[in-house]
Design a protein around this nucleic acid. Structure first.
Lengths: 251, 251
DNA sequence: CCCGGCAGGTTGTATATACAACTGGCGCCA
DNA sequence: TGGCGCCAGTTGTATATACAACCTGCCGGG
């Protein structure tokens, strides 16, 4: 008997999200039915139901009674109101995520990084520089610094299959995040990594995350202005029900 | 036996949301436990569990195993991307806000505006074009279109002393807002109004507000990239165990 | 007095079962 | 041929049950 730390409905969800992220499941593709999932994974139908129902609530899939479950169509924009990693974001839009690691090393902190992570300048921190692509088109240059003591295994991860954010949130529960959004002209190196023409602006998100009251990571995320935008939705409390409106199937 | 058009778990959810909306349940108050709800409403514990679980996923309540369910604390839920009234924003920084009205008129809707406001192309809408300045330095060019039927007095306001957003939120209770943020190079006219050097990018916020289920206003807000940025903070619900952070909607 | 353990309440998960409502296709019948 | 109805598959809901993990307060032993 193995100890199960993660619940089975969560395993099912993560598995389907991964299949969307890798492109194995594309928008409008059919997702296995509840009974199929129950059979292949050895769980009850109710557990499969919960996994698919939550994926629906989170916008990954569309469900039609009597027909089946399908990968949701691409969405126009991402949600800035949610702290999620770029791979999930791309999967959420029904596209394929891939990543290229440009650097993954131990480095002394410069002044800006040291201030952001609340360490002494020159002390060693981990740094990852990764280009994330959506259907092979670069969409984000992630320049992330991590306080060494909080994530000892940070340098041993393969960031083509996971993402720094995913590893960090697995290692240390996210307690708080701060972010700043601005428009900038990119450095030549950034422009090159993102395949941007000269003169095109970047949408830059600078994000700092905290766990146990201390800064854990500091990320500068550059996005090509022509291919990326942030969207948010706001509903005052008490106005209608949350969640996404689906096409009403009943009168 | 009466026909039940709405499922019971949803009745439970709506009942609790209503009790929060009326103030009968305040933040940090205890919500009845699953067993209590099951008993008082004559449903099984699993049905009560689903209602509370979904309320948690939607951010209404906080759940702690072994302790109970509590109304979520709104303090923690602050906008990650808060587009506040520009006058308040400037006042908050201790600076002086001033505005110059470039246009305030009735106009036929072009295709983009008509689509955004869900009116027929060519039908008349109100338009305001205002430059907002901080200590006389231009900080925002507000290009706003308003559906005529919702704000009959829109053209009679003096937007050097109030702002279009302030007037709209006073006239029609905000039911929903959508916003998109992107980085763009400005048109020459925009650049001139904002006193921007050539080549400097803009941070553009496109915002649409809804009341009574219909679009009310559509605003395009251009800001000089070198002088403006959006900042936000985020605290996930249930900062203990790596929870599923869900949609974050807040005041 | 302090501390450990236990009892009871609460949430979290998993399962088996049941029925309703809806969809799509197949086959039967006029 | 055309239409109708049935059936298999799918999702949606509701329930009873079971066990695990967790928290709090209480009580008793040291």
């Amino acid at each position: 008997m193995s100890v199960r730390s993660v619940p089975r409905y969560r395993e099912l969800k993560d598995g389907i999200i991964a299949r969307i992220a890798t492109g194995e499941l594309k928008p409008r593709d059919r997702v296995p039915s509840e009974n199929e999932l129950a059979g292949t994974h050895g769980v009850s139908r109710m557990t499969a139901n919960r996994a698919l129902r939550e994926l629906h609530a989170e916008g990954y899939v569309e469900r039609i009674a009597g027909r089946g479950t399908f990968v949701a169509d691409l969405r126009a924009a991402s949600h800035v109101l949610e702290v999620r990693n770029i791979a999930e974001e791309i999967a959420h839009r029904g596209h394929r995520h891939s990543a290229r690691v440009l650097e993954l090393a131990r480095r002394p902190a410069d002044a800006e990084v040291a201030r952001a992570l609340a360490v002494r300048p020159g002390s060693e921190v981990f740094r990852a520089l990764v280009v994330h692509a959506e259907n092979d088109v670069p969409l984000q240059l992630e320049d992330r610094h991590v306080a060494a003591c909080f994530a000892p295994g940070f340098l041993e991860q393969d960031y083509t299959v996971t993402t720094p954010s995913a590893y960090l949130s697995a290692v240390a529960p996210l307690a708080r995040a701060e972010q700043v959004v601005r428009a900038e002209l990119p450095d030549p190196s950034v422009r090159q990594h993102l395949h941007m023409p000269e003169g095109e602006p970047c949408l830059v998100v600078v994000r700092r995350t905290f766990a146990r009251g201390r800064p854990v990571s500091y990320g500068r995320l550059h996005h090509p202005g022509s291919r990326f935008e942030l969207a948010g939705r706001y509903t005052p409390p008490g106005a209608g029900r949350g969640g996404r409106q689906r096409k009403a199937t009943q009168p």
